[in-house]
């Protein structure tokens, strides 16, 4: 990595030789990756490259066939409350009888522990998180009566209520209107400014270089990692997407141009 850390402070996130398989079909091979904060870190790759799986493996949602993942130098179990998560929007039933506010409140549950109910402090926090994502005015609405972008921001507010140091977001910009994208990006930038590390699985190459400080290109294996401008080269993209895609060529040329005129 380009920024060396003193041995005394452990890395925020470390993948050691991680291999994941669904049944007998391997989806990720020998991933070695170290990420440090603060910053916006993008995991980029084509469909079926195992980007989301990498994220789920880190969170213990899919079993590792080999290797290990460490957070702040410790296994996940020891630092759960320091890790926030925004799953893909499609994973839940949006007809579920809960309000926007109820969902954001769920972000406080892990810190509350078993059977304790959210009190005034948790409610205050949830209201604050809704304000930060610009949804304070729909707090009492049933979650199904929101646009896709608003739903995504509800999930983001719930993650904010987790008060974590490291955030994982799985395709937060997928199917989201431009205004919500900007709002989400603004919230993530504020988190970065507050010293947090934000790891985002992202499919859109065009926006990748403008949003992320550093990226990892993944296609079953780790192709490259580092600052976005250095990694998103035509050669690397060709290796990752392995096909003559117009968009890629265009992007490659755009990146090359930007490198020539700093």
């Amino acid at each position: 990595m380009s920024r060396p850390q003193p041995d005394s402070s452990p890395h925020c996130l470390e993948f050691h030789d991680v291999t994941v398989a669904y049944g007998r079909r391997p989806v990720l091979w020998n991933i070695d990756l170290t990420v440090d904060g603060p910053g916006l870190f993008g995991i980029i790759g084509p469909n079926g490259a195992g980007k989301s799986t990498l994220l789920k493996a880190a969170l213990g949602l899919v079993p590792l066939a080999g290797g290990s993942v460490q957070f702040f130098g410790q296994p996940l179990g020891a630092v759960r409350t320091r890790v926030g998560y925004v799953p893909q929007r499609e994973t839940v039933d949006w007809d579920f009888p809960v309000s926007v506010f109820d969902v954001v409140l769920m972000g406080t549950y892990a810190r509350l522990g078993w059977f304790r109910r959210p009190g005034p402090r948790e409610r205050e926090l949830a209201r604050d998180c809704l304000l930060r994502v610009g949804l304070a005015d729909v707090a009492n609405r049933q979650i199904g009566r929101l646009s896709g972008g608003q739903q995504q921001r509800v999930f983001l507010a719930r993650a904010l209520a987790q008060q974590a140091d490291l955030y994982f977001l799985d395709e937060p910009m997928a199917g989201v209107d431009a205004r919500s994208q900007e709002q989400i990006f603004a919230v993530l930038s504020a988190l970065r400014a507050a010293g947090k590390l934000i790891v985002v699985v992202h499919h859109d190459l065009r926006s990748a270089s403008e949003w992320f400080d550093r990226v990892a290109l993944v296609d079953m294996r780790l192709i490259a990692t580092g600052p976005a401008a250095e990694v998103l080269t035509p050669e690397n993209l060709q290796r990752t997407y392995a096909g003559p895609l117009d968009v890629l060529d265009e992007l490659g040329r755009a990146v090359a141009r930007r490198e020539r005129t700093p």
Binding site: L61, P87, V92, V103, M106
Partner: peptide, 12 residues
């Protein structure tokens, strides 16, 4: 019931 993956990721 609402979001099992989120619950699992936050340690439940």
């Amino acid at each position: 019931a609402f979001d099992a993956p989120f619950a699992a990721a936050s340690g439940w």
